[in-house]
Computed example of a mutant assay.
Amino acid sequence: MATMKSVQTGTAPNTVDVVEIERPVPGPRDVVVRVRACGICGTDVSFLHMGGAPFGPGGSMIPLPLGHEPAGEIVEAGAEVTGLKAGDRVVVNPQGVPSGIIGCGGELGGMREYLLIEGAAVGKNVAVFPDTVPFDVAALNEPMAVARHCVNRSGARPADKVVVFGAGPIGLGAAIWLKLRGVEHVTVADVIPERLETALAIGADAVINSATEDVTARLTELHGEAVNALGQPRAGTDIYIDAAGAPAVFDATVASAKWGAKMVMVAVQKKSAAIDLGGMLRSELTLIASQGYPTEIFEVTPEIVEHQERFARLISHRVPFSEVGRAFDLTLTPGAAEKVVVTFDGPAA
């Protein structure tokens, strides 16, 4: 029996285990992908904090296969598969397989040497990309689809002025999509100077260090003056995007929002204090939630190919699979990394 290595939540919280499991064999409609790169997401970190997934008897924790941002190359294809062949380089839709979401509660994880794609079909669960794109950049496809859906939900137009709170991968991805959409002015706010430098490098028009600067004053300086429904002075910002999930973001938005402004929440929300509904009312602030990527998962692929140099700047650390424990340690350490991608270089076991 051929085996391979796979990463799952560890026996103790905030740890991972690398286990030896059976290498998959494709059915007639399946393909096997040799994973060449897989990003680590905040969702993976959440599962590490919990110590697994509560799917065991009585809600007990069980080990969870990790990774839902894989890119790789097809090494085996079933006899009934069409449009795909061995050697094709592909990105994966982790929500497009019948055994559950890859790396988020399903039977399969993307942080492994070989990944079975059940019922493989182009446009459904895989998309092919050219060999001009490095695997690590291609592995950004899934999080960039999340960011793209957020921008789509915002309805941003070229004349709009937008602020993105949180210069992690999703926030920076949203900033890229906003600028590619032709949005006039995009500001990125964060508390980590290095992330703000990255924001400028990927095309943001301005940045705000929200740990040291008055957010409302800076937004007014950048986006002009406006008023809320009561005529009280506010910033001229049209759209606020929360890619941070911190209670302070909502407070800053309500304090700054003009009449008719919109706020889009794409970050996983941390426990927050009471929402200032009165402040929302005074600005007629529209609150929009953004979850996943109903249509965007492969819409983004050709644009990542076209603008790969810009997206590559989002990757702060490339860590070999042989050091996967260190890769997860980086993501578990606040402020230590922006985007960590695990690479599978050399022949797989």
Score class of each variant (00 low, 15 high):
147 A>G: 13
100 G>P: 06
113 E>C: 04
305 V>W: 06
124 K>N: 15
309 E>M: 00
222 L>A: 09
69 E>F: 03
80 E>G: 08
26 P>S: 11
2 A>Q: 09
254 V>Y: 02
276 D>K: 06
140 L>F: 02
183 V>R: 04
262 K>L: 09
125 N>Y: 07
259 W>T: 07
216 T>A: 14
53 A>M: 11
150 C>H: 05
19 V>Y: 02
212 T>C: 04
38 C>W: 02
293 Y>S: 15
280 M>L: 06
251 D>N: 07
65 P>S: 14
236 G>D: 12
329 D>I: 00
3 T>V: 09
283 S>N: 01
318 R>D: 15
336 A>I: 10
100 G>E: 12
120 A>K: 02
306 E>L: 05
256 S>D: 14
195 R>W: 05
31 V>D: 12
338 E>N: 11
92 V>R: 01
210 S>I: 09
208 I>G: 08
229 A>Q: 06
125 N>F: 02
136 D>P: 08
349 A>W: 04
245 G>A: 02
122 V>N: 11
177 W>N: 12
334 P>G: 14
194 E>C: 02
199 A>P: 14
333 T>L: 11
97 V>S: 05
228 N>P: 09
132 T>Y: 05
183 V>S: 09
38 C>V: 05
90 V>N: 10
206 A>P: 08
55 F>Q: 13
12 A>G: 07
234 R>H: 04
125 N>R: 05
204 A>L: 07
338 E>K: 03
254 V>K: 03
2 A>G: 03
19 V>C: 09
20 E>M: 03
171 G>W: 00
247 P>Y: 01
173 G>R: 01
288 I>Y: 00
237 T>V: 12
47 F>H: 14
18 V>W: 08
267 A>D: 01
16 V>Q: 07
237 T>I: 10
189 A>C: 11
4 M>R: 11
70 P>C: 13
179 K>N: 15
179 K>H: 13
231 G>E: 13
160 D>T: 06
110 G>Y: 07
124 K>G: 15
332 L>P: 09
58 G>R: 12
81 V>A: 11
54 P>H: 08
217 A>M: 08
147 A>I: 06
65 P>N: 15
200 L>W: 01
92 V>E: 10
78 G>V: 09
205 D>E: 14
239 I>M: 04
344 F>I: 12
314 L>M: 10
342 V>D: 12
73 E>L: 00
14 N>Q: 13
266 V>T: 13
174 A>I: 03
253 T>V: 15
250 F>S: 10
